[in-house]
Design a protein around this nucleic acid. Sequence first.
RNA 1: GGCAGGUUGCCCGAGUGGCCAAAGGGAGCGGACUGUAAAUCCGUCGGCUUAGCCUACGAAGGUUCGAAUCCUUCACCUGCCA
Length: 425
Amino acid sequence: MSTDVLDDLEWRGLVAQSTDRAALRRELADGVLTLYAGFDPTGPSLHAGHLVPLLTLRRFQQAGARPIVLAGGATGLIGDPRDVGERSLHDEDTIRDWGARIRGQLERFVAFDDTPSGALVVNNLDWTGQQTALEFLRDVGKHFSVNVMLGRETVKRRLAADGLSYTEFSYLLLQSQDYLHLYRRHGCRLQIGGSDQWGNIVGGVELVRRVESAAVHALTTPLVTDAEGRKFGKSTGGGNIWLDPAMTSPYAWYQYFVNVSDADVGRYLRLFTFLAREQIEALEQDVAERPHLRAGQRALAAELTTLVHGARQTEQVVAASGALFGRGELRDLDATTLDAALAEVPNAQVGSSEDPTIVDLLVATGLSESRGAARRAVGEGGAYVNNAKVVDEAWTPGPGDPLAGGWLVVRRGKRNLAGVRVLSS
RNA sequence: GGCAGGUUGCCCGAGUGGCCAAAGGGAGCGGACUGUAAAUCCGUCGGCUUAGCCUACGAAGGUUCGAAUCCUUCACCUGCCA
């Protein structure tokens, strides 16, 4: 198996920390390495940030390693301690539901085949669900020193702040046990994850060493932030951008990446795309020389949309973006083009008898959250219909306003678009 | 179990009887400038049928013409003591 994968990961900036790099290199050269990464169901969908370790798993597979994708049905019930404070527990049904959804998403990023590098999907609830507390404390707990656990950064911060529960404190043991289980059962010798997982991963490495006298490895990917230091994958509204198309539309997903700043685009191309080094370097140069063309951003957005939603969706959102953001006149678009483009953004229908004002349209499309917000938008000069600014709250579409297919293109701000059909009722 | 401190809007944080939908900061949103970028500047930032009304300062009750502010009980958090 090729060890180039490590060089490639390093060039891409995907390696935050790892155990002995030379030893890992030997493992990779030795045969088919089995590695795993775990994903806890902390929400109904994976989000953009999850892609970093997930795509890294895929890179390893492409280099000939065998990936195990772990859905954290058990660990998700406990919750990894984080700086912001104690988590509130979700009920088991919720976690089970989220776990099932996430598992479906995880499966799309690795290949399942009969080759030695064919992927596996596992759920840690399968080997912890029936375990008793006594077994756990005797078989796993005995190998952990509280003294060491208290020294972990997250634990120290939590103790200095609001404290943390015994439940969260125990999370490390569960994740460590997973590594031990996968080592025994599948010969797994490398665990990867986000850099915030380093402590948990090393916990597993230590456990395997103590119990099995075997040296297994750890590698983490960096926590990705933008040039401002904000966590990657947070939409401008502050929420996550999700992989589930029902939660973040493919259009919104594409738009998020098209809007990545120049300062971030090169780094993101390396982290998130499978483009070759030469292609990425060419794009970076293009961004430096002709930033207004946004070639890097477009490539990034297209690659990631294809990866997550498929090539067909990408074509559609690229076409929609072109039509709606193009310099051309909306009035020149034919009904078919407009139908397709507006299918990608929020839609609403209103009856003409309701005499909808601009405020009604903004609220009906969800572009504004309340009538007050809609009025504000109009007052601030941020409301548009068919690319024309609307300054009067009482503005109502006239008979000449609908475009082909009966559409009104409503916009709030620079880039929040929606389609409205006024039905003559 | 005792004592002390705390719980304010998306987040941080001021407010200790009316001038409080609540200072200030951050985030967000809109505008200008640009390139659907960054920086900068300006504006905005609970809801509604908007000269008014409703909801809101951990929860419930009370005092008062009037409470985020005072009292009572409860819940939770932090620290010290047992």
